[in-house]
């Protein structure tokens, strides 16, 4: 999957100018960049790729799961009821939820801590059967242990031959072999394995 000669501007501000992105199929891909560098705008464009010509090889919108950055669900439902709703949607994976989620099943979603809410919402996005998974800064608001757990769930998706694109401004959860698109500037994107990007990021 790739994006060629990509230009994007919003309210007269240039976000990307003639840049290319490249994402490996059935792998974990990161979009690394500082805050306000256009990472969310990029995911929005990928999620709506059907109307754009320079986004090549992306699945159609109905085959994409997209976890928004800011997420809350003000409903008086238990976690089990929310999971049951997701299972009723067309195309969900049949696997047992991880222990961390099972422990929360009987609790009301509104009564969960911010970290627990985030874990449940991330897990909902993993449950659905899609071709491409977009995660907008999933580690935001999570402690180190929870963040590592979430990335272990996400890495399980790769084993199921799913393509994942994650935006982040932290380096903690990126492995050396992961494909990274580093937004160095609005007109310069470095694309390579994280090991190689690390050496080039220094300059």
């Amino acid at each position: 999957m790739k994006i060629e000669n990509f230009n994007l501007s919003k309210q007269k501000r240039i976000i990307f100018k003639d840049v290319n992105f490249y994402f490996e199929d059935c792998q974990l891909n990161f979009v690394l960049g500082k805050r306000q560098s256009g990472k969310t705008d990029l995911l929005d464009q990928i999620a709506q790729n059907e109307s754009l010509n320079n986004l090549i090889g992306f699945p159609k919108t109905s085959k994409i799961a997209y976890l928004a950055q800011q997420n809350d669900f003000y409903v008086n439902l238990t976690v089990a009821e929310i999971l049951h709703f997701i299972r009723q949607l067309d195309g969900t994976k049949k696997f047992t939820p991880p222990l961390r989620i099972l422990q929360l099943e009987r609790q009301k979603f509104l009564e969960l801590s911010m970290v627990e809410k985030k874990l449940v919402i991330i897990y909902l996005n993993i449950m659905v059967e899609k071709e491409l998974y977009l995660f907008d800064e999933p580690e935001m608001g999570l402690d180190l242990v929870s963040s590592q757990e979430v990335f272990s769930w996400i890495r399980e998706l790769v084993k199921l031959d799913k393509t994942i694109i994650i935006t982040t401004n932290k380096l903690d959860n990126i492995c050396d072999i992961d494909n990274v698109n580093y937004i160095k500037a609005h007109d310069e994107i470095l694309v390579d394995s994280y090991l190689k990007i690390k050496s080039r990021m220094a300059f």
């Binding site: 919108t61 799961a65 997209y66 997420n71 067309d90």
Partner: peptide, 18 residues
């Protein structure tokens, strides 16, 4: 308005497809 403001409308839209 509540769904949209919480950001969940975006997530739910892609989960459900529309």
């Amino acid at each position: 308005i509540r769904l949209r403001e919480s950001g969940f409308l975006k997530t739910l839209t892609y989960l459900s497809g529309s």
